[in-house]
Nucleic acid binder design. Sequence first.
DNA 1: CCATTTAATTCAACCGCTGAACAAATCGCG
DNA 2: CGCGATTTGTTCAGCGGTTGAATTAAATGG
Lengths: 419, 419
Amino acid sequence: MAAMWQCQEVTSASTAGAVRQGSLRELNLAVVLRRIAAADRPPSRAGIAADTGLTRATVSAVVDDLIAGRLVAEAEPEPRTGAGRPARGLVLASDGPAGLGLEVNVDYLAACVVDLTGTVRHHLVRRADLRPVSPADALARLAALAAEARAAAVRDGLTLAGAALAVPGLVGDGGLVRLAPNLGWRDVDVPALLAGHSLAEPVDGVPPLVVDNEANLAALGELYARPAGPRSFLHITGEIGIGAGIVLDGSLYRGARGWSGEIGHFPVQPQGRPCRCGGQGCLERYAGQEAILAAAGLPGAELPADTAATRLADLADAGDPATLAALADAGAALGVAVAGVVNLLDLDTVVLGGGYAPLAPWLRPPVVAEISRRVLTAAWAPVEVRPAVLGAQSAAVGGAGSVVRRIVDRPVGWLARSA
Amino acid sequence: MAAMWQCQEVTSASTAGAVRQGSLRELNLAVVLRRIAAADRPPSRAGIAADTGLTRATVSAVVDDLIAGRLVAEAEPEPRTGAGRPARGLVLASDGPAGLGLEVNVDYLAACVVDLTGTVRHHLVRRADLRPVSPADALARLAALAAEARAAAVRDGLTLAGAALAVPGLVGDGGLVRLAPNLGWRDVDVPALLAGHSLAEPVDGVPPLVVDNEANLAALGELYARPAGPRSFLHITGEIGIGAGIVLDGSLYRGARGWSGEIGHFPVQPQGRPCRCGGQGCLERYAGQEAILAAAGLPGAELPADTAATRLADLADAGDPATLAALADAGAALGVAVAGVVNLLDLDTVVLGGGYAPLAPWLRPPVVAEISRRVLTAAWAPVEVRPAVLGAQSAAVGGAGSVVRRIVDRPVGWLARSA
DNA sequence: CCATTTAATTCAACCGCTGAACAAATCGCG
DNA sequence: CGCGATTTGTTCAGCGGTTGAATTAAATGG
């Protein structure tokens, strides 16, 4: 919430959860659509009715609305299953609304388009060192890339329903980037700088952009990418800083002010190396990219952030002893922090994302070791540690996914627009 | 969820959130009742209508149902405010349903009765060392105490709507206490042992008891005790072990399996003292009651758990240097852990409860110091650290509160029963 | 004492779910 | 090939519960 500026306006009946007459339909549209989205096989109207407890008549009426709004389509005849009139499978429309995901990072810009089904339809990446570039220029380049992506989406018959921008930093209310240390940004008012670009122009009164932290959106990407996956997990992105996205019960936990996930300053060695945060022995100083590179004896600091990880992976693959030792140490430090978090939150899954994804083969064993040492319940309830399925650049995909996900969760907003 | 056995049966319309015709009333009953509960002044029907967006007609109908069900009462004439017909204030009934909160701990049994308004109507405590007592005997004594409390409630015209039992340990599905180290309990099947006692007899088919972790219920007690307080906070109970209840967005976070809050093994000194959990340098070894007592030079281990805290407070009050040093060290260790949690979850409040409550004057400064050193966002968003308002034994009160809270959140369950 | 104001209730209208009946489409069995 | 069985999807009268306006209730102020 704190990380959003101008959320889709909250319309009727949302006042304090009161249920008015029309909310009935509003809620049931969401229930039915969610079920279609979550099913692994295209469900029938009758099946949805049986599962939800609604009447077949009601489900039919609701589905008619969803089809008219281009959110749902009927699948072609299903494989026969038995006697009786064959069911017509329902699937999410792949030519309806889509989400635009954007990312500004230290050494690349990215834009991607994800449709309702969660498929990545387009993915554009521009590599460039953005540290010397002013925020205004960086955002102008991003707007150009976004326009390109939007054109590609339109060619596919898709309608962009909104956009989400991932930045590697703390985001406050109103899309204000308070601090993005690795970009050198401080108090950058993204909406203001984008004013005038097509990105920022409301379509049908719906504000087009939300700004959020990169780690948060990457965690969401991971959540959407595995609909049958765990409902609660910790997603750690190891870049220059270390960020974590916390997904609890299937939704992102943002914290009291939207600044959750600061795991980089978890104390792994309270009397240890001083950290720029003022504390001592922070995780970042032991498992951050700079620390790993230094320990591996690489000149490091000059490398682009995302090539550093692959570089380390190559060296480790080749059996370089210094690199292997550096990764083992980093993994152990990471494991201490992860174990603390798992103890506290009772999570059953930890995802290594961002720069950690390619390094997972070497980081995972020490992390698992620390967990089994330190997590009380690990003995009778194992904790899974695995690399992110989306790998790096999952933040843009996650951002785009969060846009379409909002439509699935509250289809009335889209239906009112397109009616 | 994992910590509950036999939750109130989930009736109509709860299937996957589908909203059926009758759910409309069900939901609006909850909306109106919650608003009455949350208001700081008795609201009028018209005011509720304006706030929620419902019609005055609807609110009147809903309120009629709530009054008929003894959940709401009309307050006496309000102080005049202006022209027009005076409003009739609505308040939660103080003679309707009530919750029974129970607690088994190392050196006492407790039972308390809380009415809908959150007022503690009765509170019985029996001091006794329960470590040498078998679980069956302990629960039999508890059942006797509960019967006493129930009789007192009935004399007040209250109807007990359920009970919650707090135990200092891990609770699994079905009310099974997996492990309560300080009680010496392991795999104790509470419902089975209580079978036959009046506590376990369903009333009108509603199962009467839920079993939960002490730290969780204490955190809920804190939440209910301050309706206008923070929506997210960490509640730490320092007993022999150290437990934490995590309240996020106004509801308790239990974790993937119901075992969240294990902060006692947070690594404050990863290469430090070995801990019985197998790890090293766990918080418990530095800020646990035994550790503090040992550092203060007290024979300690023999003291009952809750007198140990007051004993330490007395010594600190008297200026005993060893005690003051011990508390400073414990506070620093606690601060390291708390800072890590606050960084991760972006909480704005930390509550020192249980045995830490009386020690707060001495623990708070070092905790605050570590937070301001280590929490990045502390500079522009302060973190409040304060003692629990309920002090010790808040678990029983919190448990009783959770019973009545369930009624406020879903009044239909109660109305169906009492109709 | 009456106009004004705000609170609460009453009541016909209406929205959207309900349940049953019906039509559609396929399989299985003679 | 035909007919019953079976399951899906639609139609429609019925109904619960909200809606909005009109009405009554109860106070203040000039």
